[in-house]
């Protein structure tokens, strides 16, 4: 079992957003989390990643049987959790190369490995660039500075490829993407799927799930997972809309 969330409650500034989430992700699985705006999808992603503006008031999150909630943001990342941001942050003056080199080496240090040499690192970067079909010198540019929406998301997938996470959470990676960029992003994810890692894909639309085939689909509504099913649930949602779920409640 990779991730086990039990009765998770979380709030921000006293306002409860997550109201008892239960979710199990095993190695090799892809879970899609869908739901209307403002139901707590991004909050769930942030809480798993450890963002401290949210207070966990109740419940448990186990990751590889470790209590995740006692770890800092960076410790969770070093343990293999990756969050693909809905709105990646611009960092002027810091190149993607140096940013990634810092990240890779801090993670290696945490795992008791020596820092990666410059040659080896550049080779790895070239490989991963191919994987997400980056041909330009994007990696020499400052992190996300002046990037188009598509470039930013592609850069998130590139970073995911570089950091080789065990659990990747993609928070609306498909928003703002045209169909070509969507395909590239999805291909990147599919190439990175193994029997040893798991994905949680948060999305509004069924469209992304045409490319990334999920094993499970969950509907998040008002802070709870109200319905779970296989990939056909996504189709049903696309057809009937979220009102269909609301009526069932």
């Amino acid at each position: 079992m990779l991730l086990k969330i039990t009765n998770l409650h979380a709030s921000i500034k006293g306002k409860e957003i997550l109201k008892g989430i239960n979710l199990v992700v095993n190695k090799g699985e892809v879970h899609a989390i869908m739901g209307p705006n403002g139901t707590g999808k991004s909050t769930l992603a942030s809480v798993i990643a450890g963002r401290d503006v949210f207070d966990v008031t109740e419940g448990e999150v186990l990751y590889n049987a470790k209590n995740l909630l006692t770890l800092s943001v960076e410790e969770r990342a070093r343990e293999g959790i990756f969050l693909g941001f809905q709105y990646p942050v611009e960092i002027p003056g810091v190149s993607i190369t140096n940013f990634m080199r810092t990240a890779v080496n801090e993670i290696r240090k945490y795992r008791g490995l020596d820092p990666m040499g410059a040659g080896e690192f550049l080779k790895m970067m070239e490989e991963k660039k191919k994987l997400v079909e980056i041909t330009s010198n994007l990696t020499n540019r400052s992190v996300n500075e002046g990037f188009s929406g598509g470039e930013k998301k592609r850069n998130e997938i590139f970073q995911m490829a570089m950091l080789e996470p065990t659990l990747a959470i993609l928070d609306e990676t498909d928003s703002g993407l045209d169909i070509d960029a969507l395909r590239v992003v999805a291909n990147g994810v599919n190439k990175l799927r193994t029997s040893e890692n798991g994905f949680v894909v948060i999305t509004h639309y069924q469209r992304l799930l045409d490319y990334i085939i999920p094993d499970f689909v969950h509907v998040l509504f008002e802070g709870r997972i109200v319905k779970s099913g296989g990939k056909e649930l996504a189709m049903e949602l696309e057809e009937k809309g979220y009102d269909w779920i609301k009526q069932q409640l």
């Binding site: 942030s46 990643a49 943001v73 960076e74 941001f85 942050v89 990240a103």
Partner: peptide
């Protein structure tokens, strides 16, 4: 948000 972004990549 930027701090969270960097730390999420494993940077202390």
């Amino acid at each position: 948000t930027a701090m969270f972004y960097l730390r999420q990549r494993g940077i202390g």
